[in-house]
Protein backbone atom coordinates (compact mmCIF):
# COMPACT_ATOMS: atom_id res chain seq x y z
CA UNK A 1 0.00 0.00 0.00
CA UNK A 2 1.29 3.48 -0.79
CA UNK A 3 2.18 5.69 2.17
CA UNK A 4 -0.28 8.38 3.28
CA UNK A 5 2.57 10.80 3.91
CA UNK A 6 5.72 10.88 1.86
CA UNK A 7 8.53 13.42 2.23
CA UNK A 8 11.19 13.34 -0.46
CA UNK A 9 14.44 15.25 -0.04
CA UNK A 10 12.69 18.00 1.93
CA UNK A 11 14.87 20.99 2.81
CA UNK A 12 13.98 23.90 5.04
CA UNK A 13 16.14 26.68 6.33
CA UNK A 14 15.53 29.87 8.24
CA UNK A 15 18.14 32.25 6.87
CA UNK A 16 21.44 30.45 7.20
CA UNK A 17 20.08 27.95 9.74
CA UNK A 18 19.34 24.59 8.10
CA UNK A 19 16.43 22.91 9.88
CA UNK A 20 15.56 20.09 7.48
CA UNK A 21 18.43 18.75 5.44
CA UNK A 22 17.22 16.58 2.58
CA UNK A 23 14.74 14.64 4.68
CA UNK A 24 13.14 11.45 3.36
CA UNK A 25 10.30 10.02 5.40
CA UNK A 26 7.25 7.86 4.84
CA UNK A 27 4.28 7.12 7.04
CA UNK A 28 1.74 4.40 6.26
CA UNK A 29 -1.98 4.85 6.74
CA UNK A 30 -3.04 4.07 10.29
CA UNK A 31 0.54 4.07 11.50
CA UNK A 32 1.45 5.66 14.84
CA UNK A 33 4.85 7.31 14.58
CA UNK A 34 6.84 9.02 17.33
CA UNK A 35 9.50 11.60 16.46
CA UNK A 36 12.20 11.97 19.09
CA UNK A 37 15.50 13.79 19.22
CA UNK A 38 17.25 16.82 20.67
CA UNK A 39 15.60 20.23 20.45
CA UNK A 40 16.34 22.02 17.21
CA UNK A 41 16.64 18.73 15.34
CA UNK A 42 13.72 19.60 13.07
CA UNK A 43 11.00 17.31 14.49
CA UNK A 44 8.44 20.05 15.03
CA UNK A 45 9.28 21.60 11.69
CA UNK A 46 8.32 18.33 10.00
CA UNK A 47 4.84 18.56 11.53
CA UNK A 48 4.57 22.25 10.74
CA UNK A 49 5.45 21.77 7.08
CA UNK A 50 2.94 18.92 6.76
CA UNK A 51 0.32 21.26 8.27
CA UNK A 52 1.43 23.99 5.79
CA UNK A 53 2.31 26.32 8.65
CA UNK A 54 5.82 26.50 7.17
CA UNK A 55 6.78 26.44 3.52
CA UNK A 56 9.62 24.23 2.39
CA UNK A 57 12.75 25.40 0.61
CA UNK A 58 13.15 22.26 -1.47
CA UNK A 59 11.93 18.71 -2.06
CA UNK A 60 8.36 17.50 -2.08
CA UNK A 61 5.71 16.46 0.39
CA UNK A 62 2.93 14.15 -0.73
CA UNK A 63 -0.20 13.48 1.24
CA UNK A 64 -2.47 10.66 0.16
CA UNK A 65 -0.60 10.45 -3.12
CA UNK A 66 -1.01 14.13 -3.92
CA UNK A 67 1.65 16.86 -3.85
CA UNK A 68 1.12 19.28 -0.97
CA UNK A 69 2.88 22.36 -2.26
CA UNK A 70 2.25 21.80 -5.95
CA UNK A 71 -0.70 21.01 -8.12
CA UNK A 72 -1.34 20.06 -11.71
CA UNK A 73 -2.81 22.66 -13.97
CA UNK A 74 -3.12 21.87 -17.67
CA UNK A 75 -0.76 18.97 -17.14
CA UNK A 76 1.93 21.23 -15.65
CA UNK A 77 3.12 21.26 -12.06
CA UNK A 78 2.60 24.73 -10.55
CA UNK A 79 2.76 26.22 -7.05
CA UNK A 80 -0.28 25.30 -4.99
CA UNK A 81 -2.97 27.94 -4.66
CA UNK A 82 -5.07 28.57 -1.58
CA UNK A 83 -7.86 26.26 -2.78
CA UNK A 84 -5.43 23.36 -3.17
CA UNK A 85 -3.89 24.00 0.22
CA UNK A 86 -7.30 24.06 1.85
CA UNK A 87 -8.23 20.77 0.21
CA UNK A 88 -5.00 19.21 1.49
CA UNK A 89 -5.41 20.69 4.98
CA UNK A 90 -8.79 19.02 5.31
CA UNK A 91 -6.96 15.69 5.58
CA UNK A 92 -4.74 16.82 8.42
CA UNK A 93 -5.37 17.94 12.00
CA UNK A 94 -2.88 19.29 14.48
CA UNK A 95 -2.61 19.73 18.25
CA UNK A 96 -0.16 22.33 19.53
CA UNK A 97 2.14 22.55 22.51
CA UNK A 98 0.42 25.76 23.64
CA UNK A 99 -3.13 24.41 22.97
CA UNK A 100 -4.08 27.52 20.93
CA UNK A 101 -7.72 27.39 21.91
CA UNK A 102 -9.71 30.45 20.88
CA UNK A 103 -10.03 32.36 24.16
CA UNK A 104 -13.05 34.41 23.08
CA UNK A 105 -15.20 31.29 22.68
CA UNK A 106 -16.59 28.74 25.09
CA UNK A 107 -15.32 25.16 24.98
CA UNK A 108 -18.36 24.10 22.98
CA UNK A 109 -18.00 26.92 20.46
CA UNK A 110 -14.31 26.15 20.03
CA UNK A 111 -15.35 22.77 18.65
CA UNK A 112 -18.60 23.81 16.99
CA UNK A 113 -17.42 26.86 15.08
CA UNK A 114 -14.86 25.13 12.84
CA UNK A 115 -17.46 22.47 12.05
CA UNK A 116 -19.93 25.14 11.01
CA UNK A 117 -17.54 27.59 9.37
CA UNK A 118 -15.17 25.20 7.64
CA UNK A 119 -17.19 22.04 7.11
CA UNK A 120 -20.55 23.78 6.79
CA UNK A 121 -22.36 21.47 9.23
CA UNK A 122 -25.79 22.43 10.51
CA UNK A 123 -26.03 23.77 14.05
CA UNK A 124 -27.55 20.53 15.37
CA UNK A 125 -25.08 18.24 13.64
CA UNK A 126 -22.13 20.36 14.76
CA UNK A 127 -23.33 20.43 18.32
CA UNK A 128 -23.98 16.70 18.38
CA UNK A 129 -20.53 15.92 17.02
CA UNK A 130 -18.88 18.40 19.39
CA UNK A 131 -20.62 16.93 22.43
CA UNK A 132 -19.67 13.43 21.36
CA UNK A 133 -15.99 14.33 21.10
CA UNK A 134 -15.91 16.40 24.26
CA UNK A 135 -17.43 13.41 26.03
CA UNK A 136 -14.70 11.24 24.54
CA UNK A 137 -12.02 13.44 26.11
CA UNK A 138 -13.96 13.54 29.39
CA UNK A 139 -15.11 17.17 29.30
CA UNK A 140 -18.83 16.84 28.83
CA UNK A 141 -19.42 18.97 31.92
CA UNK A 142 -17.25 21.87 30.66
CA UNK A 143 -19.18 22.78 27.51
CA UNK A 144 -19.88 26.34 28.60
CA UNK A 145 -16.57 27.05 30.32
CA UNK A 146 -14.07 29.41 28.72
CA UNK A 147 -10.52 28.26 27.96
CA UNK A 148 -9.11 30.79 30.41
CA UNK A 149 -10.91 29.01 33.24
CA UNK A 150 -9.60 25.52 32.43
CA UNK A 151 -6.43 23.78 33.53
CA UNK A 152 -3.76 23.16 30.94
CA UNK A 153 -4.67 19.49 30.74
CA UNK A 154 -8.32 20.29 30.16
CA UNK A 155 -7.44 22.88 27.52
CA UNK A 156 -5.29 20.38 25.70
CA UNK A 157 -8.08 17.81 25.74
CA UNK A 158 -10.44 20.38 24.22
CA UNK A 159 -7.83 21.07 21.56
CA UNK A 160 -7.64 17.36 20.75
CA UNK A 161 -11.43 17.12 20.56
CA UNK A 162 -11.54 20.19 18.34
CA UNK A 163 -8.99 18.76 15.90
CA UNK A 164 -10.60 15.29 15.88
CA UNK A 165 -14.06 16.70 15.24
CA UNK A 166 -12.89 17.79 11.79
CA UNK A 167 -12.36 14.06 11.03
CA UNK A 168 -8.85 14.33 9.61
CA UNK A 169 -7.11 11.20 8.38
CA UNK A 170 -3.84 12.34 9.89
CA UNK A 171 -3.34 13.82 13.35
CA UNK A 172 -0.17 15.69 14.23
CA UNK A 173 0.76 16.13 17.90
CA UNK A 174 3.46 18.72 18.53
CA UNK A 175 4.85 18.21 22.05
CA UNK A 176 1.33 18.25 23.39
CA UNK A 177 2.34 17.60 27.00
CA UNK A 178 5.40 19.86 27.18
CA UNK A 179 3.55 22.93 28.43
CA UNK A 180 1.68 21.01 31.14
CA UNK A 181 2.33 20.71 34.83
CA UNK A 182 3.58 17.19 35.57
CA UNK A 183 0.39 16.11 37.33
CA UNK A 184 -1.71 17.00 34.26
CA UNK A 185 0.33 15.03 31.72
CA UNK A 186 -1.44 11.75 32.46
CA UNK A 187 -4.94 12.88 31.53
CA UNK A 188 -3.76 14.01 28.09
CA UNK A 189 -1.73 10.86 27.47
CA UNK A 190 -4.81 8.79 28.34
CA UNK A 191 -6.73 10.49 25.53
CA UNK A 192 -3.87 9.77 23.13
CA UNK A 193 -3.88 6.12 24.21
CA UNK A 194 -7.55 6.00 23.34
CA UNK A 195 -6.84 7.38 19.88
CA UNK A 196 -4.00 4.92 19.34
CA UNK A 197 -6.65 2.21 19.14
CA UNK A 198 -8.29 3.93 16.17
CA UNK A 199 -7.14 1.63 13.43
CA UNK A 200 -7.47 4.06 10.49
CA UNK A 201 -6.13 7.20 12.13
CA UNK A 202 -2.57 8.08 11.22
CA UNK A 203 -0.78 9.74 14.12
CA UNK A 204 2.55 11.51 14.15
CA UNK A 205 3.72 12.81 17.49
CA UNK A 206 6.72 14.81 18.52
CA UNK A 207 7.32 13.92 22.13
CA UNK A 208 9.77 13.92 24.97
CA UNK A 209 7.76 11.25 26.83
CA UNK A 210 9.97 8.29 25.97
CA UNK A 211 7.95 5.77 27.94
CA UNK A 212 4.79 6.81 26.20
CA UNK A 213 6.39 6.74 22.76
CA UNK A 214 7.59 3.24 23.45
CA UNK A 215 4.14 2.19 24.61
CA UNK A 216 1.99 3.33 21.70
CA UNK A 217 4.22 3.99 18.69
CA UNK A 218 4.48 1.48 15.87
CA UNK A 219 7.71 3.11 14.82
CA UNK A 220 10.15 5.61 16.33
CA UNK A 221 12.19 8.07 14.28
CA UNK A 222 15.25 9.60 15.89
CA UNK A 223 16.04 13.04 14.47
CA UNK A 224 19.25 14.97 14.55
CA UNK A 225 20.28 18.05 12.57
CA UNK A 226 17.29 17.85 10.25
CA UNK A 227 17.74 14.22 9.27
CA UNK A 228 16.50 10.86 10.48
CA UNK A 229 19.46 9.16 12.10
CA UNK A 230 17.64 6.02 13.13
CA UNK A 231 14.21 4.48 12.59
CA UNK A 232 12.70 1.30 13.89
CA UNK A 233 10.38 -0.50 16.26
CA UNK A 234 10.28 1.15 19.68
CA UNK A 235 11.67 -1.90 21.46
CA UNK A 236 14.63 -2.02 19.14
CA UNK A 237 15.39 1.75 19.17
CA UNK A 238 14.99 2.16 22.89
CA UNK A 239 16.85 -0.96 24.03
CA UNK A 240 19.38 -1.63 21.34
CA UNK A 241 19.83 1.32 18.96
CA UNK A 242 22.15 0.96 15.98
CA UNK A 243 23.45 4.52 16.15
CA UNK A 244 25.78 5.79 18.86
CA UNK A 245 24.07 9.16 18.63
CA UNK A 246 20.71 7.62 19.45
CA UNK A 247 22.28 5.78 22.35
CA UNK A 248 23.91 8.97 23.67
CA UNK A 249 20.65 10.90 23.39
CA UNK A 250 18.64 8.20 25.14
CA UNK A 251 21.19 7.89 27.90
CA UNK A 252 21.10 11.63 28.49
CA UNK A 253 17.29 11.79 28.44
CA UNK A 254 16.55 8.68 30.47
CA UNK A 255 19.04 9.54 33.17
CA UNK A 256 17.78 13.13 33.41
Amino acid sequence: MSPIIKLTNVCKSFGSLVVLDGLDMEVAQGEKVALIGPSGSGKSTVLRTIMTLETISGGEIEIDGEALWHMRRNGKLVAADEAHLRKMRSKVGMVFQQFNLFPHWSVLKNVVNPLRTVLGLSAQDARARAEELLALVGLKDKLNAYPGNLSGGQQQRVAIARALAMRPRIMLFDEVTSALDPELVGEVLNVLRLLAHEHDLTMIMVTHQMGFAREIADRVLFFEKGRIVEAGKPDKVFTNPDSDRTRAFLNAVLQG
Binding site: M51, T52, L53, E82, R86, R89, S90, V92, G93, M94, F96, Q98, N100, L101, F102, P103, H104, N113, P114, T117, V118, A159, R162, A163, M166
Partner: peptide, 27 residues
Protein backbone atom coordinates in the same frame (compact mmCIF):
# COMPACT_ATOMS: atom_id res chain seq x y z
CA UNK B 1 -3.04 38.46 18.57
CA UNK B 2 -0.70 35.55 19.39
CA UNK B 3 0.63 33.79 16.32
CA UNK B 4 -0.64 30.45 17.62
CA UNK B 5 -4.19 31.64 16.99
CA UNK B 6 -3.70 32.01 13.24
CA UNK B 7 -1.80 28.72 13.22
CA UNK B 8 -4.66 26.94 14.96
CA UNK B 9 -7.11 28.52 12.51
CA UNK B 10 -4.95 27.35 9.63
CA UNK B 11 -4.72 23.83 11.09
CA UNK B 12 -8.51 23.77 11.38
CA UNK B 13 -8.65 24.80 7.73
CA UNK B 14 -10.30 28.20 8.16
CA UNK B 15 -9.83 30.37 5.08
CA UNK B 16 -7.82 33.55 5.52
CA UNK B 17 -10.97 35.67 5.61
CA UNK B 18 -12.71 33.36 8.07
CA UNK B 19 -9.70 33.36 10.38
CA UNK B 20 -9.50 37.16 10.21
CA UNK B 21 -13.15 37.82 11.00
CA UNK B 22 -13.91 34.96 13.39
CA UNK B 23 -10.64 34.46 15.24
CA UNK B 24 -8.35 37.48 14.97
CA UNK B 25 -10.65 40.51 14.94
CA UNK B 26 -12.85 39.40 17.88
CA UNK B 27 -9.70 38.98 19.95
Amino acid sequence: VPHGQSEAACALNYSRQQALWKILIPQ
